[in-house]
Design a protein around this nucleic acid. Sequence first.
DNA 1: TTGTACGCGTTATCAT
DNA 2: ATGATAACGCGTACAA
Lengths: 337, 337
Amino acid sequence: MAEITIKYLAEKLNLAPSTVSRALNDSHEISSGTKEKVMALAKELNFQPNPYARSLREQKSKTIGVIIPERINNFFSQVIDGMEAVTKAHGYHLLVYNSNEDIEQEKTILSLLVGGRVDAIVMSISGQNQKGEHLKVLKNRAIPIVFFDRIPYDFPTTKLITNDYQAGYEGTVHLINKGCKKIIFLVLSKEVSIGKERMRGYLDALKSHNLPFDESWIVACGHSEIENIAHLEKVFYKIDRPDGVLASVEKLALATYRALAKTNIKMPEQVRMVSFSNMKIADLLCPPLSTISQPAIEIGVECANLLMKRLTKKGQPDLEDKIVTIPSVFTERESSR
Amino acid sequence: MAEITIKYLAEKLNLAPSTVSRALNDSHEISSGTKEKVMALAKELNFQPNPYARSLREQKSKTIGVIIPERINNFFSQVIDGMEAVTKAHGYHLLVYNSNEDIEQEKTILSLLVGGRVDAIVMSISGQNQKGEHLKVLKNRAIPIVFFDRIPYDFPTTKLITNDYQAGYEGTVHLINKGCKKIIFLVLSKEVSIGKERMRGYLDALKSHNLPFDESWIVACGHSEIENIAHLEKVFYKIDRPDGVLASVEKLALATYRALAKTNIKMPEQVRMVSFSNMKIADLLCPPLSTISQPAIEIGVECANLLMKRLTKKGQPDLEDKIVTIPSVFTERESSR
DNA sequence: TTGTACGCGTTATCAT
DNA sequence: ATGATAACGCGTACAA
């Protein structure tokens, strides 16, 4: 690890460590002469204060823990990019963990983090279960936490989501306007908050347009791509097959493309699709995919801003228990034309 | 930050802090009775040792710094996933930074890291300049570092890459076998190591098949998507336009799709393409893209293994100055059929 | 088997 | 304006 310390600089300069420390922190009670000398040597030797000694002393780590359910996903990458842009400016670091959609891993990661390793946490919880019981490790700790996208129901803190209900509603209406009568809804897990909200929008859209609805139109998928494709294939082989698809998650839209490729069903002629997705290349698919995309970078920026305000300013209150909604963007493409 | 400390546990149990410390570390010089008592209370209160106190004491952070030039990129996400899988098992944490393809940012991040914040670094350097002069902050430090994919030339340590030369050669031969006579090579920057190697393979393939070559067939692009598309459009508007494309980076293949969409040129009928890419949905593009994909997870795992061995075992020598090559995988699809 | 004392590198408090 | 000292929480050498 490090070699050059304040003590070392102090010896070299015949000063006390405390003086060097103050000089480095530009204290006003140090003569400009010594300040310059100290700064010069520090720069020459490329001195970096030991972050852990400092953390121990100041009781803060200048580090934010980020927990996401999946790393190979543009949405989460963009969110983290957004966060990093603002935390970097405040001298904060990002410890990033992938929970792999696994509650047990989330629990393990959380217990690792509450020991003081991070000053705050940003998290999108796994799709397995949204009850948030596994979050109770946090209950008695004072550590600020912000949830985004996939949020727990009963955890009192600030959460950031997109207007999932409205987007689900409008996506469905779009399909209805294109003539779809039997629109299915693809969801990863009925437990997940965003799935539920998007589904609510979907259901309300059907109802307000007096379309029939059958319980079987809600297609619950899993995390296995192969099983999802097989499952969807069956859905499309039914005599009374759907003519519209609203996918609540990008990977299910992709599974639909692959399932359709195994049939003779044409998109958009025989079935139209709209999907929640942050893919950059939706326009390059066959056919180009109509998307509802989330302002991911903005979400990341907003999460970080909330935390930076809470952490760097004095006398800040705890994070409010509220849900902040950021609008998503609908883009019509061939898949639903 | 944390509240429950060893001292606190010691008071509760009427023991000395050192005893508690030893019990928690399962020292053999502690009676099983006290051990159990200590463990029980620690578990009950969900005690987590303060990582920074420990780091300060032990002079190691159990943290690896990861620097990538781009976060919204499957390849890098996969590499990090691979790394995390092994570091997690060793109790190590990952501090991830995006240099945004910017040398200055790389420099800043590096100087942040050498202060002892991390025990080792894994890095893929930005495309701006591969000379690696900005890496000299590391020279006098003993910190182990591993480079992957985009590596510097003259930095003595272990580097991991894929068989870029061979893959470039074979991709080109594939296009030649399909009948292409005028194959252009798209590269982000002629400075980048991987670009150079892939280009070398491309050039050698042309030569060994006695195909003509023109300097203008090497198309150097930039980081601006819009400019790249405009540039490529011009390339395809030439009378003597290319009938084959080897893209050394995924984003340039995508730019090619978009450029072609603005013309009437058909792929693969009039121009065929092969690209280096780790996209999961290459099969869903119009037309599906022939890819040379890198074993990203394996690369991450390998990087981490190297470092874990170096860091967790005693008396390990410094990282060898060598280049490890892992083969990439070619998949033929419609774009080059 | 357990307790005491010290130091990791930093900064804040109290002296000078 | 500068120096001495203590403390953050942990682990270990030494003492008992």
